[in-house]
Computed example of a mutant assay.
Amino acid sequence: MMKILLTNDDGYDAVGLKALIKALEPIAKVMVVAPAKNKSACGHSLTLDRPLRLISIDDEYYKIDDATPTDCIYLSLGHLFKNGYRPDLVISGINIGANMGEDITYSGTASAAMEAVIHGVPAIAISQVCKDMCRSIVVDWDFELACKVVVDLVNKIENGYFPLAERKFLNVNIPPLKAKDCNGVKITKAGYRVYGNDAHRHTNPRGEEYYWIGLHPLSWRASIDSSCDFEAIKNGYVSISPIMLDMTSHSDIKDLENWLNN
């Protein structure tokens, strides 16, 4: 059986993480290392200004106080997997909320996958898109489609090989649909996210000003061939995007050299 390391930026007790554990335990050996509390939108950050405590919750189930998902992968690979041994795969999720377009750079979910591939471990980030920007209080999240997609991907990896080269990971987004209503899977590119500003100014009882960053609607710039992650989700498809860590704009190197030399 494959050895799979799981994390989730929604926290060690997140409903999406628990659904993922349940789906994978019949087909894999699972270890969980996740933040003790929600760390959404923390990006690819490591904690350098304070010590971190790895706390055992159950057999092969850990939380780390005030850690980021990147911390969780970093410490897991350095201290829970020893003598050169590595998990076969890291899966980050199931996140509540989309991680598409440039939101990938904010995402704690995607960042855990980034950290895994930096250390040479194949990785998948998986997110459940919400219908209403996740404003509703939902008691029973339906992760059936997300779990099916993850299990199918794990089976493909176990029976063959991870489809991407080093320092690349799969970013998966699940449409807010029942499994029976999904139109299939599309391989997509990361879309062009359109951002606004949703910072709310408030005053506390002592008259001190503070701000609270809100939620942005999923707005994007349409692609010419309708091949981006946003469009796949809109059309009822699962979106799977290959993401690379090399952020160099290779097509601009020659022009930049010419610009500097003239």
Score class of each variant (00 low, 15 high):
Phe81Val: 11
Leu54Gln: 05
Gly120Ser: 11
Val117Gly: 08
Thr68Met: 05
Lys39Asp: 00
Pro69Phe: 11
His79Pro: 00
Ile73Asn: 03
Gly120Thr: 09
Gly108His: 00
Pro87Cys: 07
His119Glu: 15
Ile64Thr: 00
Gly43Ala: 14
Tyr12Glu: 08
Ile96Cys: 02
Leu5Lys: 11
Asp13Pro: 01
Tyr12Thr: 00
Asp88Gln: 08
Leu24Gln: 09
Gly120Val: 03
Ala110His: 07
Met31Gln: 12
Ala19Phe: 00
Leu17Gln: 01
Arg86Asn: 09
Ile55Gly: 07
Cys72Ile: 01
Glu115Met: 15
Ile57Val: 15
Ile27Trp: 03
His79Phe: 14
Tyr12Ser: 02
Ile64Pro: 05
Ala14Val: 01
Pro87Gly: 08
Val117Arg: 04
Pro35Met: 07
Pro26Ala: 14
Met31Phe: 09
Ile91Pro: 00
Leu5Arg: 09
Thr68Trp: 03
Val30Tyr: 02
Ile118Cys: 05
Asp88Tyr: 10
Thr47Ala: 15
Leu48Glu: 15
His119Ile: 04
Ala41Thr: 11
Tyr85Leu: 14
Pro87Lys: 04
Tyr61Glu: 02
Lys63Leu: 14
Ala112Met: 09
Ile91Met: 06
Ile96Trp: 00
Arg50His: 14
Tyr106Ser: 15
Met31Asp: 03
Ala36Ser: 15
Gly108Ile: 04
Tyr74Glu: 14
Gly84Asp: 11
Pro87Thr: 09
Leu89Met: 09
Gly78Cys: 13
Ile91Asn: 02
Asp66Phe: 15
Glu102Ala: 13
Asp58Cys: 05
Met100Lys: 12
Asp103Met: 13
Ala14Met: 00
Leu17Tyr: 01
Pro69Ile: 10
Val30Glu: 03
Ala116Ile: 10
Asn38Ile: 04
Lys37Arg: 13
His119Tyr: 13
Pro35Arg: 00
Leu46Gly: 01
Glu25Thr: 15
Ser111Ile: 10
Asp66Pro: 08
Val32Trp: 03
Thr7Ser: 15
Ser56Pro: 11
Gly120Met: 06
His44Val: 02
Asn99Met: 00
Asp59Gln: 11
Thr7Met: 07
Tyr62Asn: 09
Asp103His: 12
Ile94Trp: 04
Ala110Met: 12
Tyr12His: 08
Ser107Thr: 10
Ile96Ala: 01
Leu20Asn: 01
Lys29Pro: 02
Ile96Arg: 13
Pro26Val: 02
Ile64Cys: 08
Ala19Gly: 09
Asp65Met: 11
Asp66Leu: 13
Leu5Thr: 05
Ala34Tyr: 05
Ser56Asp: 07
Leu20Met: 12
Gly120Lys: 04
Arg50Tyr: 12
Leu52Lys: 10
Ser40His: 06
Asp59Phe: 07
Ile57Thr: 04
Ala67Arg: 06
Ala41Tyr: 02
Ser45Val: 10
Ala14Tyr: 03
Pro69Cys: 14
Ala113Lys: 06
Ala36Asp: 13
Pro51Lys: 10
Asn99Arg: 06
